[in-house]
């Protein structure tokens, strides 16, 4: 019942500008419910459904946002696993984080819809600051992604991506970000 009420306020707030504050308040309240038992920073917003299965440690930094959509965001942290999400990270709907050992996400990262990040025992994932992972990309176990890198839509990344590079394809190849068109191109 409470969830349904939150959904209603969220929907109304989305369409009625005057009620945006109510929407934000609901999202903040929702974050405490959805991320119960986690170490949650200030002003974390959870719009929509976030499915959490936590058997390890989860840290979510200040001002992270989980966006609503047609598919829930899913976070699974296994026993002994640690998920650390830096401040001001943004997750579109349908993102999936599966942690067995360690997944560390830097500050101000953006994760598009249906992005999947998975580590494995002994193969942690480390994502730097200001990384953008576009729609549908897959980050496999053992990958380190440097600051400012961009992972193109639909890419499957199984090798490290140095800072500032653009990763594209399946398997993803690395190239200069200067190879994207000026004026807007995520690759």
């Amino acid at each position: 019942m409470m969830v349904a009420l939150m959904e209603l306020v969220d929907w109304v707030g989305l369409h009625v500008p005057a009620l945006r504050r109510a929407r934000t308040a609901v999202a903040m309240a929702r974050s405490h419910l959805a991320l119960a038992g986690c170490e949650v920073g200030k002003r974390v917003l959870v719009h929509g459904t976030l499915q959490l299965e936590r058997h390890g440690r989860v840290v979510v930094g200040d001002r992270c946002v989980f966006v609503a959509g047609p598919f829930p965001t899913a976070v699974h942290v296994g026993r002994g696993g640690t998920l650390e999400v830096g401040p001001r990270c943004y997750f579109n709907y349908g993102a999936q984080l599966e942690v067995h050992d360690s997944v560390r996400l830097g500050e101000r990262c953006m994760f598009g819809s249906y992005v999947r990040v998975t580590d494995a025992p002994g193969a942690p994932v480390v994502v730097g600051n200001d990384v953008w992972v576009a729609h549908g990309a897959v980050i496999n176990a053992g990958v380190t992604i440097g600051d400012g890198a961009v992972i193109s839509a639909g890419s499957v990344v199984s090798q490290d991506v140095p800072a500032g590079m653009l990763a594209m394809g399946n398997p993803a190849r690395l190239m200069s970000q200067q190879l994207s068109s000026p004026g807007g191109d995520h690759g």
Partner: peptide, 16 residues
């Protein structure tokens, strides 16, 4: 190619 918007980055992958 890029400045004249003849090929975008996904096109670059095909070119490569």
């Amino acid at each position: 190619f890029l400045k004249n918007r003849l090929i975008d980055s996904t096109g670059m992958m095909e070119l490569i």
